[in-house]
């Protein structure tokens, strides 16, 4: 057992400040365990959103020493006893209370992506796809919607472009449909214009903070940017499209 100081932001949308809590930490604890201990013993009214305690629900996203993390996956043995551990709500979304944010903006962005539109079934009425066709997009299904990537993305965090850019999470979702072997919707114009793929400048912070280790930048955003290049900025691809009449696989 060791003793740590937690500096936790307490307040709501009208304002707040940091409050220091000195607390005991047992071996094997994660930050969320400590927050629960503080909640139980020192600050019964402290708001913390959590659910699974296993890194699978994405509820306990917060900024720990300035880095967006899941509190349930952040082990206390990462920190020295001398460190004051600062805990804050996510910066990109409005605070409701203490460590809890209103992330509803994200659900609005989700609505900008049109639903899956499958190609016609085979003659026997079934849809078929092979495992190697879906390996790529199954990586994106690991997303737990913790919105840490949305929080750290400077385009929406600092540059105030929530009006033009949907953020990494929803570019992943768009990629999971664009790269889907059965989807026939032509999504590239929307990827560029409504979702704002060009606003991402590939600084990869979304990938750095992803607790599921999804290759957000390399496997989703850059392939989308390359598809946009195919459509709008590559004269060779333009000529090939004119000759073959193909917009993309599955779309004539």
């Amino acid at each position: 057992m060791s003793e740590h100081i937690f500096r936790i932001w307490r307040g709501d949308s009208s304002g707040g400040d940091f409050v220091d809590y000195k607390t005991d930490v047992d071996d094997g604890m994660v930050v969320l365990d400590v927050l629960h201990r503080i909640q139980a013993k020192q600050a019964g009214d402290m708001a913390v959103r959590w659910n699974c305690k296993a890194g699978k629900c994405g509820s306990c996203g917060m900024e720990i020493n300035g880095i967006p993390k899941l509190a349930c996956m952040t082990r206390m043995n990462n920190y020295s006893q001398r460190d004051v551990i600062t805990v804050q709500p996510l910066m990109t979304f409005p605070v409701i209370k203490d460590l809890v944010c209103d992330v509803s903006w994200n659900y609005e962005q989700n609505l900008k992506i049109s639903p899956f539109k499958p190609s016609p079934p085979d003659s026997d009425g079934r849809h078929r796809m092979m495992q190697e066709d879906v390996d790529r997009i199954q990586e994106f299904r690991k997303c737990i919607e913790c919105y840490l990537c949305q929080d750290v993305c400077h385009v929406i965090r600092n540059q105030g472009r929530k009006d033009r850019f949907v953020g990494p999470r929803f570019l992943i979702r768009a990629a999971s449909l664009v790269l889907h072997p059965l989807d026939v919707e032509d999504r590239i114009p929307a990827v560029r214009d409504e979702l704002g793929s060009g606003f991402c400048n590939i600084t990869r912070c979304c990938t750095d903070v992803c607790p599921e280790n999804i290759g957000i930048t390399d496997n989703a955003i850059i392939p989308l940017k390359e598809h946009v290049t195919d459509r709008y900025y590559d004269p060779v691809a333009w000529i090939l499209r004119k000759v073959t009449g193909r917009i993309r696989s599955g779309v004539e």
Partner: peptide
């Protein structure tokens, strides 16, 4: 833009960020 993750970038509003 930005210098590090969760670190304030050099240019922020009111300079309109346009990315690429």
């Amino acid at each position: 833009s930005p210098p590090g993750c969760a670190v304030g970038p050099f240019s922020t509003q009111p300079i309109q960020y346009k990315g690429e």
